[in-house]
Simulated scan of single mutants.
Amino acid sequence: MAVLYERLRATHLGCPVIYVSTGAWNVAPTLSRFLTRNFYPPGPLLLTDWGPTHDRWFRSGRLHKEQSLGRIAAEFPQLKWLLVGDDGQHDEELYGDFLRNHPDNVAAVAIRQLSSSEAVFAGGRSRGEEHERTTRVPWLYAPDGAGLWDQLVAKGLVE
């Protein structure tokens, strides 16, 4: 996946990379080291708070991602995004909602398909609904960044 991000940055000079994760802020140093050591491009980490809220024991990672995407759309209304996620949590559904609310701000959605063991740790896989029937925005699926890159090239989104 790191190579995918670097290729994207090389073909779209100056494009921002923003990492939206359900990870808690207390893991930010570890996550930053992981990203750097594995050659992911630098970018802000939008992580969540950890711990109870007034109505639950744990904060909602889904709500955090939803709010973060909404904030990104509000702060950068002129940008067109490539949304990259995986099929392990709620990324497909969240990106579908974002696309419906901001159709002019999404170039494509790229979903990495988790391996069986990764899916166990992620709590399962999403349903993998058919999205391209309801929108002109391409939805790409592959088990790795190389496969996603090939599809981006095939769709003419990168050269």
Rank of each mutant, 00 (worst) to 15 (best):
L83E: 01
P143S: 07
K155R: 15
Y5A: 14
G61I: 03
L4Y: 02
H54F: 13
D150W: 06
K65E: 09
A73I: 11
A142R: 05
L45T: 03
E92N: 04
H90K: 07
W25G: 06
I111T: 10
E75R: 15
A122H: 11
G70L: 05
E66F: 13
L148K: 01
H131E: 07
P16S: 12
G14K: 09
L79I: 10
P44K: 10
A119K: 06
A122R: 09
L114C: 00
R112I: 09
F98M: 05
K155D: 09
A2M: 07
D55E: 12
W139K: 03
G85C: 02
V137K: 02
I18S: 09
L31R: 07
D150C: 08
D97M: 14
A146M: 09
L99H: 02
V20G: 07
W50C: 11
Y5V: 09
D97V: 14
Q151H: 05
A146V: 11
A108N: 02
T36K: 10
R127A: 15
N105Y: 08
K80W: 04
S115F: 08
Y19S: 03
L82W: 03
P77W: 06
L13F: 11
G14N: 08
G14I: 10
D104H: 14
W81N: 00
G51P: 03
W149A: 05
V27D: 05
Y141T: 00
R37M: 14
E66Q: 15
R71T: 15
G51R: 03
E118F: 03
G128I: 01
F34V: 08
Q151Y: 02
N38I: 08
W81T: 00
R33L: 15
